[in-house]
């Protein structure tokens, strides 16, 4: 069981959270011509690293805020959690 530190509520059990996938994916800029290739990268292509992974989680049974987590995909150790507008260092 993961023990996740919500940046707003503190440590809670995994059962309170929903996963939101890769947190490094950026949507292409608005109001610009976007190639099929760029859309493909944004919608479908994922690095899915073996090791440190920056991902999004949603404290769905708590404060309902989204936030970023840096977690190891092999050991599940969580190194950092930050608010959405902060960067993982």
């Amino acid at each position: 069981m993961l023990y996740i530190k919500c940046p707003f509520c503190g440590y809670r059990s995994q059962k309170e959270f929903a996963y939101g996938g890769d947190g490094t994916i950026k949507r292409p800029e608005l109001n610009q011509e976007i190639s099929d290739e760029k859309w493909n990268e944004f919608v479908y292509l994922r690095k899915s690293p073996n090791g440190k992974h920056i991902e999004l989680w949603h404290h769905v049974a708590g404060c309902r805020q989204w936030f970023k987590v840096q977690r190891d995909t092999v050991t599940h150790e969580i190194f950092q959690t930050t608010k959405m507008n902060e960067e993982i260092k």
Binding site: G21, D22, E41, Y44, L45, R46, K47, S48, P49, N50, T73
Partner: peptide, 17 residues
Amino acid sequence: STNVLAEKLNMTLPIET
């Protein structure tokens, strides 16, 4: 392990592990 080997080939795939 597809993504791990794809990384060695500088490929990014529509796959997650």
